[in-house]
Amino acid sequence: MTATFNTPQEMPYGPAHPLQVLDLYRQCSDPDAYWVTFIHGGAWSDPEMTKSGGHPLIRSLLPKYPRLNAASINYRLSPHPRYPSNGNAAKHPDHIDDVRLALSFLQERYSMRREKTVLVGHSAGAYMAFQVDAGCGAAAAVVVGIGGVYHLGRLVEEYADYEGFVERAFGGGWRQVDAEGLAEVEDGGKGGGRVVLVHSSQDELLSFGQSRYWAGVLRGRGRVVKEVYGAMGNHNEAPKGTELVGVVEAELEELEMESAKGN
Score class of each variant (00 low, 15 high):
residue 123 S to A: 11
residue 42 G to K: 00
residue 242 T to W: 13
residue 68 L to D: 01
residue 204 E to T: 05
residue 168 R to K: 12
residue 186 E to H: 14
residue 157 E to F: 04
residue 18 P to V: 08
residue 120 V to I: 08
residue 240 K to P: 02
residue 179 A to I: 02
residue 35 W to M: 00
residue 76 R to S: 13
residue 65 Y to H: 15
residue 50 T to F: 05
residue 119 L to A: 05
residue 223 R to K: 15
residue 175 R to P: 09
residue 197 L to S: 04
residue 141 A to P: 03
residue 12 P to A: 14
residue 258 E to A: 03
residue 120 V to E: 00
residue 249 E to F: 00
residue 155 L to K: 04
residue 225 V to L: 04
residue 146 I to E: 07
residue 43 A to F: 08
residue 11 M to C: 12
residue 83 Y to R: 11
residue 153 G to R: 09
residue 81 P to R: 06
residue 137 G to F: 14
residue 204 E to Q: 13
residue 89 A to I: 12
residue 73 I to W: 00
residue 2 T to Q: 15
residue 207 S to A: 10
residue 209 G to Y: 02
residue 63 P to Y: 01
residue 71 A to Y: 01
residue 175 R to W: 05
residue 126 A to L: 02
residue 194 R to L: 09
residue 243 E to C: 02
residue 145 G to D: 02
residue 183 A to W: 09
residue 200 S to I: 04
residue 245 V to G: 08
residue 106 L to K: 06
residue 149 V to C: 10
residue 104 S to I: 14
residue 3 A to G: 15
residue 163 E to H: 14
residue 245 V to R: 06
residue 235 H to Q: 11
residue 258 E to N: 08
residue 117 T to Y: 07
residue 217 V to Q: 07
residue 40 H to W: 00
residue 126 A to T: 03
residue 85 S to P: 02
residue 82 R to H: 15
residue 193 G to T: 05
residue 24 L to S: 01
residue 160 A to I: 12
residue 40 H to F: 03
residue 34 Y to E: 10
residue 131 Q to C: 07
residue 256 E to P: 06
residue 45 S to C: 03
residue 254 E to I: 01
residue 172 G to R: 12
residue 89 A to Y: 14
residue 172 G to C: 07
residue 66 P to R: 11
residue 80 H to Y: 04
residue 132 V to C: 09
residue 139 A to N: 06
residue 153 G to K: 13
residue 86 N to S: 10
residue 214 W to A: 03
residue 210 Q to T: 01
residue 233 G to F: 06
residue 78 S to E: 05
residue 201 S to V: 08
residue 199 H to C: 08
residue 47 P to K: 01
residue 150 Y to W: 01
residue 236 N to G: 14
residue 38 F to I: 05
residue 47 P to W: 00
residue 254 E to G: 06
residue 21 V to I: 11
residue 49 M to P: 02
residue 238 A to V: 12
residue 113 R to G: 07
residue 222 G to Y: 05
residue 177 V to Y: 09
residue 115 E to M: 14
residue 147 G to L: 07
residue 259 S to F: 06
residue 53 G to H: 09
residue 28 C to F: 02
residue 121 G to S: 09
residue 57 L to F: 05
residue 69 N to A: 05
residue 140 A to T: 10
residue 174 W to M: 10
residue 28 C to P: 01
residue 122 H to K: 01
residue 13 Y to V: 07
residue 170 F to A: 08
residue 206 L to T: 06
residue 26 R to F: 01
residue 140 A to N: 10
residue 57 L to D: 04
residue 146 I to Q: 03
residue 166 V to G: 04
residue 248 V to Q: 03
residue 141 A to E: 11
residue 3 A to S: 15
residue 61 L to I: 05
residue 110 Y to H: 15
residue 115 E to T: 13
residue 39 I to W: 00
residue 13 Y to I: 03
residue 72 S to A: 10
residue 198 V to N: 07
residue 223 R to I: 10
residue 23 D to L: 10
residue 52 S to D: 11
residue 136 C to A: 15
residue 136 C to Q: 09
residue 19 L to T: 02
residue 100 R to V: 10
residue 94 D to C: 14
residue 218 L to Y: 04
residue 149 V to R: 09
residue 36 V to Q: 01
residue 164 G to K: 07
residue 104 S to W: 14
residue 80 H to E: 01
residue 22 L to C: 06
residue 234 N to W: 09
residue 191 G to V: 11
residue 40 H to C: 03
residue 118 V to N: 00
residue 202 Q to L: 11
residue 127 Y to A: 11
residue 205 L to H: 10
residue 188 G to Y: 09
residue 47 P to C: 00
residue 144 V to S: 05
residue 245 V to K: 09
residue 103 L to Y: 13
residue 78 S to C: 11
residue 245 V to H: 10
